[in-house]
Simulated assay, not measured.
Amino acid sequence: MIKFGTGGWRAIIGEEFTKDNVSLLAQGIAQYVKNQVHDGKEKNEVGFVVGYDRRFLSKRAAMWISKIMAANEITAYLIHDIAPTPLIMYTVDCLKLKYGAAVTASHNSYDYNGIKLFAGGGRDASLEVTKEIEKILNGLTLKDIKEIEFEEGINLGKIKKIDPFNDYIDYILQDIDVSKIKERHLKILLDPMYGVAKTCLQTVLISARCSIDVINDRHDPLFGGRLPSPSAETLKKLRDMVVDRKYDLGIATDGDADRLGIIDEMGKFIHPNDILVLLYYYLLAYKGIKGGVVRNIATTHLLDRIAKDYGEVCYEVPVGFKHISQGMEKNGAIIGG
């Protein structure tokens, strides 16, 4: 049975992550999308963004999803190459679509794959949406799956290959004070952990005139035999190289590039909790932006203290990016994690 967790649906490849289950899930999502149209809740173009990472079967699964969307009269916008999850989310928002998905198991071990589902604005799909899709799935069988050939979908214009890379990079650069970064002449070591971050992150940093070296960037579905999740334990090589070769900074990302790990020039691992605290404080104290913050029950409570000092509110939600997204939207928060 397909069940959504805190970060989408994930399963072991060959056991539950199979063509049948991916196709069944795609059909369930397509039916949900069509229901929104029939109920008059969807007024814009009925389209669906599909992206994928470097895991085993990710590209093929993205094609399976695209074929099923096309067969259900939903235009599939298939990102033409491997893509970080934030790029896929950006594309959903940029194209003004209401739905999208990334084929990824994020920071899980190599034997997993999965699907993250996105809603309007590039946000993680809400609990209400995923519960409704699960209900639809309970009534579907393999015989209900609609599918066309990939090339037929291309020829009909129902599958469109897209390349949002340049727009995404420009979108990021316009919100960064590139001149300030250029002044530092930073020497940075990047570790994408065999994932999808290299091209985007390297392009942004080079645009800011940083000197960049990269490790662990080849295609390896086994992720070098380690968990593709940045932590003090998994970033020992990055830490040692930053110190030995005198880099200003080491940056690591997880398998689908929506998690971050930092090593400072002294070799200290900067925990994501600390990064979030620094970012929130920076927005309040240096940028003068007003607003609350959303954290889950496992995130540092130092955020509560900072929010209180600035007359703001820290909102607590359950674990899961979808709860963070909902909490930020509901409360007008400026950051969350």
Rank of each mutant, 00 (worst) to 15 (best):
I2G: 11
I2L: 08
K3S: 13
G5P: 09
G8Q: 01
A11T: 08
I12H: 00
K19G: 02
D20A: 09
I29H: 00
A30K: 00
Q31G: 00
V33T: 02
N35G: 11
D39W: 06
K41V: 08
E42P: 02
E42V: 10
K43L: 07
K43C: 01
V46P: 05
V46W: 00
V46K: 00
G47I: 04
V50A: 01
G51I: 04
Y52T: 01
F56T: 13
S58K: 10
S58Q: 04
S58E: 07
K59A: 13
K59P: 07
R60D: 14
A61S: 15
I68Q: 08
N72P: 05
I74C: 07
D81K: 15
I82G: 13
Y90H: 08
Y90R: 08
V92F: 09
Y99I: 12
N108K: 02
S109R: 14
D111Y: 15
F118W: 06
G120Y: 14
D124V: 06
E132S: 15
E132Q: 15
E132M: 13
G139W: 03
T141G: 14
L142M: 12
D144C: 03
D144L: 05
K146V: 05
K146I: 08
E147Q: 11
E147L: 10
F150M: 10
G153W: 02
N155A: 11
N155L: 10
N155G: 07
I159P: 01
I162F: 02
D167M: 08
Y168L: 07
D175A: 10
I176S: 08
V178M: 11
I181M: 03
I181K: 06
K182M: 12
H185P: 04
I188K: 02
G195A: 04
A197D: 03
L201P: 06
L201K: 05
V204Q: 08
S207N: 12
A208Q: 05
S211K: 14
D213T: 07
V214R: 06
I215T: 04
I215F: 10
H219E: 12
P221I: 11
L222N: 13
G224S: 05
R226P: 03
T234F: 06
K236Q: 12
K237N: 13
K237C: 11
V242S: 03
V242T: 12
V242A: 04
V242M: 02
V243Q: 12
L249N: 11
T253S: 15
D254V: 00
A257W: 09
D258P: 10
L260W: 14
L260S: 13
G261F: 04
I262F: 13
I263C: 07
I263E: 10
P272Y: 08
L276D: 05
V277P: 06
L278M: 15
Y280P: 08
Y280T: 06
Y281N: 15
L283A: 10
A285F: 13
Y286L: 14
K287V: 11
K287R: 14
G288N: 09
K290I: 09
V294S: 06
A298V: 09
T299Q: 00
T300P: 00
L302H: 11
L303C: 00
A307S: 05
G311E: 02
E312Q: 06
Y315L: 00
F321G: 01
F321S: 07
K322T: 03
M328Y: 00
K330T: 05
G332M: 03
